[in-house]
Amino acid sequence: MRNVADLPLHGGHVPQWLARRMGKLTRLVLKLAVEEYGTRGLLERLSDPVWFQAFNNVIGMDWDSSGSTTVTAGMIKEALWKEELGVKVAGGKGKKSRATPEELKRIASLYDLDPEPYVRTSRLVAKVDTVALQTGYQLYHHVFLLDEEGNWAVIQQGMNKRERMARRFHWFNSETFTLNPHKAIAGLEKEFALNTVSREAKEYQKTLLDVVQESPMKIERELESLKAIANGYRPLVYYKPREPWEKDVIKRYESLGKFELNKRALEFARELSVSNYEEFLLLKGLGPSTLRALSLVLELVYDVHPSWKDPVTHPPDPFKFTYAVGGKDKIPFPIDKPAYDELISFLEELVSKHPKEKALVRNVTKITKNWKFPKWEKRPT
């Protein structure tokens, strides 16, 4: 059985007394992580929802709220800009996410890297999780981590306002952006998703690139015919209805939103003779509605299908990590300020210790590796 963690949308804020402690603890954990694993190792771990969730809970955030992503990522960004650890963060929540390209250029300049590949990657992963993979979540948070060696990771989050849930997308040094590209996806698994970046969608991608070389007017006529069929019209020629399958397909698309073509985007596709799916996704004006429309045409006219499998992965049971200092919303217990301050003092001393002494601490952690949480204390926030 696969387990998933849901991320309900939570409001509220972090009080100053807790934010100060979170900032100190975040910097200490990051220093130790880079010392132990290097910058690449840190990025690998942050792109793993298991490790990210543990980090989030250790600093005192709720285990299952949408704020666990935004607050933790914000703390990490602030800490890495204050510390010279060989890795920096661009982007953030809402308006801050739109500053990502300029911040990436600044980071690339610090590390003597060409910024353009990373700016393109930032745009592309956002397009994948908004357009190419559709599950009803709209992105509102995007952070891009880049180290001095050119390794990168992305943590972005989308919200579904109707269901009041969030979903987190993790990326790390992806070699492909169009075939199972994610490192992981944390969230509540849905019955289906319009997934055009699955390995099962290779034929779909190839056919779509062929179709968009045709006249946008022709594609629009095909779409309008399908809309008419959905409303009960049955043409005498050209299209043979496949009831009830066709109605099920149309309803599935309608559940994700409207399907309207942006003909200007399709004209760009023809003018530029796009030859791969990455180029297509980066087209100006290509949004979720247009891709839904094209996918519907491919399914019902050309009998070519995307994948409908939701690629969400399975974070571990998060309750194990909530017993460090408590949780902001008092789950499983209120923040224990003395314990929090003692932890900070311990780690401050550890940072200054000799490597042999740190090895002793690593051995101590093995003792607690198999600790199990008390099941009767499992309570969602």
Rank of each mutant, 00 (worst) to 15 (best):
T70R: 09
V71P: 01
V71R: 02
I76N: 01
I76V: 12
K77D: 04
K77R: 15
E78P: 02
K82Q: 13
K82H: 14
K82T: 07
E83R: 11
E84A: 15
L85Q: 02
V87Q: 03
G91P: 09
G91E: 10
K93H: 13
K95L: 15
K96N: 12
S97V: 09
R98G: 11
T100K: 03
P101L: 04
E102T: 04
E103P: 05
L104D: 08
K105I: 06
R106G: 13
A108T: 07
A108F: 06
L110H: 11
Y111H: 01
D112I: 06
D112G: 09
D112F: 13
L113N: 03
P117Y: 00
P117S: 01
P117D: 00
V119I: 10
R120C: 00
T121L: 13
S122N: 07
R123S: 13
R123W: 09
K127F: 02
V128M: 07
V128K: 05
D129M: 01
T130S: 15
V131D: 10
V131C: 07
V131M: 00
A132H: 03
L133I: 08
L133V: 10
T135A: 15
T135I: 12
T135L: 12
Y137R: 10
H141A: 04
H142T: 03
L146W: 04
L146I: 10
D147I: 06
E149K: 15
G150M: 06
W152N: 09
W152I: 01
W152Q: 03
A153W: 04
V154K: 01
I155S: 07
I155F: 01
Q157R: 09
G158K: 06
G158F: 03
M159A: 14
M159E: 15
N160Y: 03
K161R: 13
R162V: 14
E163G: 09
E163P: 02
R164A: 13
M165E: 14
M165G: 08
A166T: 07
R167C: 07
R168D: 08
F169P: 09
W171S: 04
W171H: 07
F172V: 08
F172G: 05
F172C: 08
S174A: 15
S174P: 10
S174V: 11
E175S: 15
E175A: 12
T176M: 11
T176G: 07
F177V: 01
T178W: 10
T178S: 11
L179C: 12
N180I: 06
N180A: 11
P181C: 01
I185R: 01
G187S: 08
E189Q: 15
K190S: 14
E191W: 11
E191I: 14
A193V: 11
L194Q: 08
V197E: 08
V197F: 04
S198F: 07
R199F: 11
